[in-house]
């Protein structure tokens, strides 16, 4: 089993902590006064996304986490699992609802996303920053209103609901920022 000593700690290193895979954000060596040397480490729990600060005795070793990020193509979902494929090796993996999380609102077949694998199983899935999706349902709105003020809800082909300007119509394709869930623009067919 691979381990890392505190003197190998650096940003991006993946370690196991409390049985969860984590990523080191930053590491600072501390030696107070004449006291014990330790490392003050900022860590992101890759399962929950939470950032915590922990200290480690200098020279202490921790287990490495078998975590890697790969770009994969989203294939389909059967409702329980979401399937992804590595387009170089054609290897397929499946992740459950917890792993796919928010990304499921935005994923359309063949979209490229960053899948974080832990022991070969998807841990988290990040949708592309921008996706282009078709509007499947929205109020017809008022003809001639191009101001975009106010807005209205629109349901997209993936089931996601976003606020769009009044001029957006059913069947149109729009660009959405998945990080904020906000409408960006219309896409010309």
């Amino acid at each position: 089993m691979a381990t890392y000593s505190t003197n190998e700690f650096k940003g991006g290193l993946k370690i196991m902590l409390d049985n969860d895979p984590c990523s080191i954000i930053e590491n600072e060596f501390v030696r107070p006064g004449k006291g014990p040397a330790f490392s003050r480490v900022k860590i992101r729990n890759l399962k929950t996304g939470r950032v915590i600060e922990r200290t480690f005795k200098s020279g202490e070793t921790v287990e490495a986490a078998d975590v890697m990020e790969t770009e994969m193509a989203y294939l389909y979902t059967d409702g329980d699992f979401w399937y992804f494929m590595d387009e170089e090796t054609f290897e397929q993996v499946s992740g459950d609802e917890v792993a796919v999380g928010e990304a499921k609102k935005w994923l359309k077949e063949q979209d490229k996303c960053i899948v974080t694998l832990w022991n070969g199983v998807p841990l988290t899935v990040a949708a592309p920053n921008f996706v282009e999706l078709q509007v499947t349902d929205t109020d017809p709105g008022l003809k001639g209103d191009t101001s975009g003020g106010g807005g209205k809800p629109a349901t997209l082909e993936t089931g996601a609901v976003v606020r769009v300007p009044l001029f957006v119509q059913i069947d149109e394709i729009i660009k959405v920022d998945t990080r904020t869930g906000e409408y960006v623009s219309r896409v010309k067919n």
């Binding site: 107070p32 006064g33 004449k34 006291g35 014990p36 330790f38 200290t55 480690f56 005795k57």
Partner: peptide, 14 residues
């Protein structure tokens, strides 16, 4: 990190 040492514990907290 501090073991049984009082001074280590003081230094740590400080």
């Amino acid at each position: 990190i501090c073991g049984d040492s009082l001074s280590n514990a003081l230094d740590y907290v400080f």
